[in-house]
Nucleic acid binder design. Structure first.
Lengths: 177, 177
DNA sequence: TTGCACAGGCTAACGGCGTTAGCTATCGTG
DNA sequence: CACGATAGCTAACGCCGTTAGCCTGTGCAA
């Protein structure tokens, strides 16, 4: 709660509609299905018309990523305040990511278009890790663990049948000390 | 050393040349520069001729990923055997990933084409985490930490000026206990 | 009321992508 | 000497993001 939530990049009502459709398309069909032509189709216009509302495809993606970061930051903050902040934080992180796996992947696969993001938003979304640990190095390490777990879980990189609840608990135990 | 190293998918000499060129191209110019036309150019042929040696672009990528996994598995094994296996393993993991960041990203961004990979190779590459911890849940958690750290470091997702050596050490400390 | 700027649609098209079809030259083997 | 396989080639298809240029409706100013 030390950082004020930064405002997201402003969108016209029509642009917001497009972002909503893009999000549904991304989540339902995956990242490679998020094309300008298909997106335009979903809202009943032609692809070039999208460029009246966004400068390029990355502009749409940036809006999506901002919304993902804002939701994540809010969810993590809501999880804090109880007696066991680290497990609560990890639970919230995992839950949020699994609720929108394709948006999570979009936000984290490859380098972020950081210079186009609302300034401070990324720090704001990550701050709960510091709030939970009270120490920057533990915070970054915990963040890396959470991110690694989510990415490997979402991408199915753990052997089938793994008891991931237990692996998460193992991480919470390691970092709670 | 409990799992035998699986053999990589066999390649003809010419196919191996192509993979070598693809690796150089990927590492020098990044993933989006790895196109069939540019790759063909590098070895002095036309793009369609590549299809005489690989069924599709993913076939080339699979060969690259297999080599990345084999090198990683070998590097991790070489790091074991000393008195402090967890920090040594993490050091080797980080070093290997940073030596070929684009190959690392290729292997880990999004779902793996697992069904096309040499069977057992992925398990073999990950086994050192089990060897270092002696316990499957700690092994998976440590793996996730290492992967998350590497990905965030490679993609520049930590705040500039972060002392990542210390963050790595913090993770090693947490998981050594 | 008329004139006009502009917002937001449209079609056509460009260059780049992965990929396929089909042709051809070279080479080792019967 | 014939022949099949290998490995190159060109042309082209359908997709992608994106640009240029056109048109039409709406709302405000003279």
């Amino acid at each position: 709660m030390t950082i004020e939530q930064p405002a997201l990049t402003a969108l016209t009502p029509r642009a917001a509609e497009i972002v909503t459709a893009a999000r549904a398309l991304l989540e339902e069909e995956g990242r490679e299905a998020l094309t300008m032509r298909v997106l335009a189709d979903r809202i009943g216009i032609r692809a070039p018309s999208l460029y009246k509302h966004f400068p390029d495809k990355e502009g749409v993606e940036v809006a999506l990523i901002e919304r993902g970061l804002a939701e994540m930051g809010a969810a993590l903050r809501a999880a804090l305040g109880g007696p066991d902040p680290v497990p609560a934080l990890l639970r919230a992180y995992r839950e949020r990511a699994r609720a929108s796996p394709n948006l999570y992947r979009l936000s984290t696969a490859g380098p972020l278009p950081r210079h186009r993001l609302a300034p401070g938003l990324e720090d704001w979304a990550g701050e709960p890790f510091f709030l939970a640990t009270g120490e920057p190095y533990a915070a970054q390490a915990l963040f890396a663990f959470a991110h690694g777990m989510v990415v490997m879980e979402i991408d199915g990189r753990f052997p089938p049948g793994s008891d991931l609840d237990r692996t998460w608990a193992e991480g919470a135990r390691a970092f709670a000390a």
